[in-house]
Design a protein around this nucleic acid. Structure first.
Length: 277
DNA sequence: ACGCTATCCTGATCGC
DNA sequence: TGCGATCAGGATAGCG
């Protein structure tokens, strides 16, 4: 399921199956997800060669030969299942979009909650699309440095948890990785952003990409799902030190201080009250 | 300007 | 076992 590492993993699987091939068939199975599918989606995709792929934050971009790009976001429940065309007798429930290539690859977009979205945009205008234009720095890019974070955080009084989730500041972090990064850096999620010291922003600038890379290397939890679609979880869960572990002993300071859960701006935050100051 | 809340949906899970 | 309440990885509009 889609946080940045899963989106990256899905994008790579999508790319391996589709890049360099021609889209031979498109099936749009309902009018909308979060927003309507583009009316000309099928017409724009069918018959076109796929040139390349790119991920920006939690968005996937698929570039086509004639200057159009398909923009895809998986929302909270979206999955992209890659397989071979013609082998899937009964399509799964909530499979809203299916793409097939002339090489026999098949991509099915399953999204029960339908918070995902698909759009078509000019490749040359990718970055000015309303959903991409205001995104902040990529956490896996060279821009992610301690001083850069310090600049972003200066004068900001919101809790650090909220700031890290703010896509206008850093693009692609979700609830799980924010909890994990704050724990690994020993920073309390309710700390006012502007009170972070230089060594703390430095630690975050190192920990965030490190955790994301680790998760990508483990394949993300969607990997197995989209390869064999049997619901088996990937190694992703093992990386969680605090997320979803309310009441468990803190992996750092031990049983003296169980992991706690609280709510911040409507989202669950998991943390160790002893280790995170 | 900024931060918080409600909201779009369905499905899984928990407590009674 | 059944049922209702609660919660879920995202992102935005709108409010104070």
């Amino acid at each position: 399921m889609p946080e940045l590492p899963e989106v990256e993993t899905v994008m790579r699987g999508f790319r391996d199956a589709f890049e360099g091939h021609r889209i031979s068939h498109v099936s749009v199975n309902r009018p909308d997800l979060r927003w309507p599918f583009p009316a000309d989606l099928r017409e724009k995709l069918e018959g076109r060669h796929v040139l390349s792929f790119r991920r920006r934050a939690k968005y996937i971009l698929m570039r086509l030969e004639d200057g159009w790009s398909m923009l895809l976001h998986l929302g909270m429940s979206g999955r992209l299942t890659i397989g071979r065309a013609g082998t899937n007798a009964t399509p799964p429930a909530h499979e809203h979009l299916v793409l097939e290539t002339d090489s026999g690859a098949r991509a099915g977009l399953v999204d029960p909650r339908r918070f995902g979205m698909v759009d078509l945009i000019q490749t040359s205008e990718e970055n000015s699309h309303r959903l991409l234009a205001h995104l902040g720095m990529e956490p896996l890019s060279d821009a992610m440095t301690g001083p850069a974070l310090a600049d972003l955080f200066r004068g900001r009084r919101s809790p650090i948890k909220s700031a890290l989730l703010d896509q206008k500041l850093i693009a692609g972090l979700g609830n799980i990785y924010v909890c994990e990064a704050l724990f690994r850096c020993g920073i309390h999620p309710e700390r006012r952003t502007c009170t972070l010291r230089k060594e703390e922003t430095g630690a975050l600038a190192e920990a965030v990409p490190q955790i994301l890379e680790q998760a990508i290397a483990s394949g993300g939890s969607s990997l197995r799902d989209y390869v064999q679609a049997d619901g088996t979880k990937g190694g992703f869960q093992d990386l969680h030190l605090v997320y979803g572990r309310e009441g468990a002993p803190c992996p750092n300071c031990g049983a003296e201080s169980p992991i706690q859960r609280m709510t911040q701006s409507g989202r669950s935050t998991f943390f160790c009250p002893t280790c995170q100051k």
